[in-house]
Design a protein around this nucleic acid. Sequence first.
DNA 1: GTCTATAAAGGGATAGAC
DNA 2: GTCTATCCCTTTATAGAC
Lengths: 186, 186
Amino acid sequence: MDNRRLIIDSAKELFWHHGYSTTSPKQVMVDAGVGQGSFYHHFPAKADLGQEVVRENGRDLLASVRSAMEGLPTGRQRLAAFLGSAGDALGGCQIGGFAYDAGILAEPALRETLGTAFVELAGLLEQVVREGQDDGSVSPKLDPAKTAAALLAVVEGAFVVARATGRQSYADAATAGALALLEATS
Amino acid sequence: MDNRRLIIDSAKELFWHHGYSTTSPKQVMVDAGVGQGSFYHHFPAKADLGQEVVRENGRDLLASVRSAMEGLPTGRQRLAAFLGSAGDALGGCQIGGFAYDAGILAEPALRETLGTAFVELAGLLEQVVREGQDDGSVSPKLDPAKTAAALLAVVEGAFVVARATGRQSYADAATAGALALLEATS
DNA sequence: GTCTATAAAGGGATAGAC
DNA sequence: GTCTATCCCTTTATAGAC
């Protein structure tokens, strides 16, 4: 099981920063320091590894968002913490890049896993918007699901624009702008 | 229509919907209906074609945003029209997908062209935010650059989430949520 | 400008020994 | 479980004739 974990951990980083389709099994083997025989023993096809990576990166992202929000007293502060997760945008979102990866989209199982990760993240944010409305930090006039979708999109879009321009400042501007809109309504 | 144009037009569609790295010169030749000799005569390397495609898709996107805004009386309405450009998100943004494409990012010239397209789009939106503040349809308390960056990110993120989940409704929710935030402040 | 032939390199595996 | 050898296919071209 040790090599299996080394492979997954390497692939998580490589697929994240370099893309799934554009990273070869060989690159993963080299990075993980395992041989070809070991690789194909644990993952008969590249897509099997992709499945684990998409699932784990989705879970890691959800966990890190929860962790960033933890202990903050108001819903709005927790949403602000989520917006802050685009604070290192040049590396790309752990799962956002998969949405434009033909190799992921072509495999129904990978696509399904990816979609589930986003649905869960959207669900978490919607819940936090509701909590913010309950504690008075978010305007009760806002639709929770739509507001959550907008905030999730801001963060995903911040990653896109930051990577495209090579400038983190665009991500910072986007999240600051979104936070200002949220605060102006409350 | 000369072959060079046929090649570019095919590549614009294919790179847009299927990705740059994940689309081969051969696929472009077949789609365009031109031979290999013709292809490599016009574009000595794939990146030369990529350069034209990124530039033209960027220009097309800017033009279609301008066109969608044209004739609308207030800045806020023009921004709403921009948000509406995520109305068909499942196909992906004409240039957004390039931000996660390793083949684009590895070529400095392509990256530069891509970045320029986003900077121009952000500049246009910032101008429209200012116009909205002048005509009273957008709150004067908002920072124009940050608000523009947020709206651009919402649209790019809407594309990402819609493609990842396979559901257009997530894009619609995101843009509706952003519009509601914008309207609640004015 | 366009054609066909050729080719080096890499991607994505499979086979069988240890 | 891991190793090395092998294999077929695609990608990304290049060469030279028409």
